[in-house]
Structure formats: C-alpha cells, structure tokens
C-alpha cells in the first residue's frame, strides 16, 4: 500500500544553482502526495528529529559550501546513522564535496575540513573550470538506459590516501569520473547517492527516476510526470550521447601511467 513520502531539501536559499532544485520539483510532480520540507540554513534539519524518506542537497557557491559544512558538521553522526539505516540521500554537483574530508581552494585561500562522512577530498581551481558530458551505467536501470549527465565544475574529487574502496554512483562509459584519472563518478553507500553531475538529473534520466521512486516507496507503482515528453527527451539525448562526433578529447579519462 502506498504511503506519503517525506522529502527534505536542505538549504534551498543557498543551494539552488544550475537548476538542481528542479529535481525535487519534478519528484513532487511525480508524487503529488509527497511532503516536501525546505530546511533553511538557520533551521535544524528535519532528519535530525525524525525519519525522512529522502534528503536532498543541490549545487551552491563556494561560500555556500562552507556554510553548509558549518551547519551539517554537528549532525555528522546522525547522517552516518541514517545512511547505515538505509535512508535515501541525493547530493548533486558540489553538494557531495561538503560531506568529504576536506575542501582545498588555494585561489580563494582556504583549506577546510568537510563534514567528514566520506574519505575523499576536493580540490578547486577557480580558473580551471571543467565542462564535459558523462554517460554511465548504474545498477538500478542497467546498460540499456545509462545515466546521462553533465559536469561544469571547478573541483576534482579524489579519495584520501589509504581509504578503502569508495564505490561510485556510476562508472562512466564516456566522460570522466570523480577526476580526470578515473571513470568512477560520484559516491554511493547504501541508499546514499552523491554525484558531481549537475542540473535536473532526475528530469533528464526518467528511467533512473522511476527506479528511485520505486525504491522510496516499494509498495506503489512509480509514475513519471509528463512521461511522454520525458522519455522522448531522454531518447533524443541518448542518441546524441551515442554519437562519436560529439565527444571531445578532454572528456576522456587520462591515463596516469
């Protein structure tokens, strides 16, 4: 039997760049019964006091990252407990970096510890913005419906030396992963998904979104809002992503040898 979903959007007043928050607007259209909690920067997150079905954090500025770290650090143990208990998280674009061990930004003169949930660190180069596409397989939907996405970022993410394997959100068939030297993109642990792909990931990838909806509420048949347009847009983009001429040298994983 279907039940109402509770979705918590963290800090939408600062984490709203690049259309990322449209992910939640779309989920809310797919599940009109969902309760969406928008937690402000000076509020205590709802996930601290009780259960939520999905915690979302979207793209933000570099200063926004520092604010988010400051606000989330006191809740690190709670976040880890929720992840271990199977609560779904979706952190897109540079939101993922907030939960890492460290963010280093020499251009802006800071090097700060992150919330520390994951053993990776991010290095920002403010005059070295990377733009590129990513196409990769995720276990939820299989090879016939790869996730399609984009990166536009100052940062590259790498595992802290000595940290054991850090599973990725996806393995890039085309495009780069966490950094130029790997095809492993993002992070996943249980139902936590973090990816540096930006923008309306759930709108662009309807098959993945359907699987997410099914995961959030296994007892209901997932329904996509405006499914006809969503699937047509996905098929058109997939066709273009499979066109060799549209991939560039800088979108290849670089050999470290």
């Amino acid at each position: 039997m279907s039940r109402a979903l509770t979705i918590e959007v963290l800090y939408p007043e600062i984490a709203n760049l690049h259309g990322d928050n449209a992910n939640i607007g779309y989920l809310a259209q797919c599940r009109p019964d969902a309760r969406v909690i928008r937690t402000g920067l000076t509020d205590t997150p709802a996930f601290v006091a009780g259960p939520v079905d999905l915690v979302y954090l979207g793209a933000m500025t570099e200063q926004g990252q520092l604010k988010a770290i400051e606000r989330l650090r006191p809740h690190r143990d709670r976040i880890e407990a929720l992840i271990d208990a199977g609560t779904a998280f979706l952190f897109t674009h540079n939101a993922l970096e907030v939960l890492g061990a460290r963010i280093r930004n020499d251009d802006m003169h800071y090097d700060v510890p992150g919330v520390g949930v994951f053993g990776f660190e991010s290095t920002l180069r403010m005059f070295g913005r990377y733009n590129g596409k990513v196409m990769g397989t995720v276990p939820e939907v299989g090879v016939e419906h790869p996730v399609l996405g984009y990166k536009s970022q100052f940062s590259m993410v790498s595992a802290v030396p000595g940290v054991s394997a850090l599973p990725g959100f996806l393995t890039a068939d085309r495009g780069i992963g966490r950094n130029m030297s790997t095809d492993v993109e993002g992070v996943r642990r249980g139902s936590f998904i973090g990816t540096s792909l930006l923008g309306p990931l759930l709108i662009v990838n309807p098959h993945f979104t359907r699987s997410l909806l099914a995961q959030l509420d296994p007892n209901s048949e997932p329904t996509l809002a405006h499914e006809q347009f969503a699937l047509a847009a996905y098929e058109a983009r997939l066709s273009d992503f499979r066109d060799e001429r549209r991939w560039h040298r800088f979108e290849r994983v670089q050999s470290t040898c």
Partner: peptide, 13 residues
C-alpha cells in the same frame, strides 16, 4: 547542435 549535446539545465534557472 552537431558537435556537442546541449546541457538544458539552464532552462530550470
């Protein structure tokens, strides 16, 4: 149109 695939994330801005 031809040499890349437009990221339409901007439409949600």
């Amino acid at each position: 149109r031809v040499t890349d695939v437009e990221n339409t994330a901007w439409t949600y801005d």
